[in-house]
Design a protein around this nucleic acid. Sequence first.
DNA 1: TACAATACTGAACATATATTCAGTATTATA
DNA 2: TATAATACTGAATATATGTTCAGTATTGTA
Lengths: 216, 216
Amino acid sequence: MDFHLKESIGQKVVNFCVNKKKQQTEQTKKKIADSARSLFAQKGYKATSIEDIVKATGCSAGNIYYHFKNKEGLFLYLLEDWNREWDKTWLAKEKLYATTTEKLYGMAEYLALDQLSHPLTKAADEFFNNSEKAPEVEERINEMVKGYIDFNRQLLQRGIDHDEFEIANVTGLAIILDGLMLGLNQHSRRMDREEALAAYRLAMDVFLLGIAKRTR
Amino acid sequence: MDFHLKESIGQKVVNFCVNKKKQQTEQTKKKIADSARSLFAQKGYKATSIEDIVKATGCSAGNIYYHFKNKEGLFLYLLEDWNREWDKTWLAKEKLYATTTEKLYGMAEYLALDQLSHPLTKAADEFFNNSEKAPEVEERINEMVKGYIDFNRQLLQRGIDHDEFEIANVTGLAIILDGLMLGLNQHSRRMDREEALAAYRLAMDVFLLGIAKRTR
DNA sequence: TACAATACTGAACATATATTCAGTATTATA
DNA sequence: TATAATACTGAATATATGTTCAGTATTGTA
């Protein structure tokens, strides 16, 4: 209405206007991400087409490619988003456990439930194992795997420092722990909630007994 | 040369002729299976096209469909062939080990090496996790998984009978053992021979300590 | 030799599906 | 208000690829 107002407030108005575009972008990006996540979870990576996402979001194919580099990029975004979410949730949850042993049981429980409510894991497996990916994507995946291993390694190291476990090869066991969770995840798809929880707990029982301090 | 000879020998000649066709079929089927196995192992399931197999074998697309129902059927054939091979090899190997503990270490070692030399596992994972499969195929896969679990269950049960382990939930542990091997398999793809062997051995160390009889 | 069954060919079919791009609409800037 | 930047459209592109089928060649049968 009054253009002098615009100038008098200056930067603030500009920021507001810029934000309106940023806001729109964020909103659209989120809408695409949410639909895509749900579809990937239901149908898997390959089986979910851009067309599917177009139908689910109501926005055009071109718009998806405006916000994401390509299908791979969209999926990577979801994976990284998921990792961020995990870090956040875990950081809050971790404090509730006193010992590393308790933390590991807590992690197992969370994984059991997260995987059931969050079947993106299935699509992730498909994506990780699919051999037709760009080198940069391969690299990004390697980093993610390294991150998971490192997470376990640090957890186990703290357990050693607190005299809970007796471990010589920490990295090796970090890999084994990840492998155990990874393998169980596949089996948990054929289980209901209670079975999955029991399986993860049992796995952790065995793992912990396997690395427990021995009484000589 | 002499048509009377044909008649005088009778059934034998007939069989010989029938065999010539059967022989041809077997030979072609094997050629296709071998090429396909190698391609699936290199490129993965989805990434290997019928066209690829056509080029590798030198026979036509139609011929592949003459011998196998479709691409899924061809892959299932390879999986079942692999299972048969495993059963045979294991049956021979198993006798060399006295205790179940030794058998489990033997199994781990074999899996570590087999998976390296036999990267069909990667394609198998892709295939198992792919959600676009016919119901009958799904069923066949479920049976295979059941078979793997049952194999472990029997192995563990024998260990219990011989007082080697202390296990309450045999089936649960059979699943965990399979999951452990499955998860390790994924990681072993990023390892060389020695690393993989060490990882599998360490995993079995932990697993066995985790289910060992306790001294009270 | 005539007929039947089996083994095989390869082009055509059907279709799915990631990606681009010329153009339009909306919003920011001066 | 004019220009630039950003957000978006949707049809066209490009192409890959599983599967079929009419027809041919080889082998078995009587």
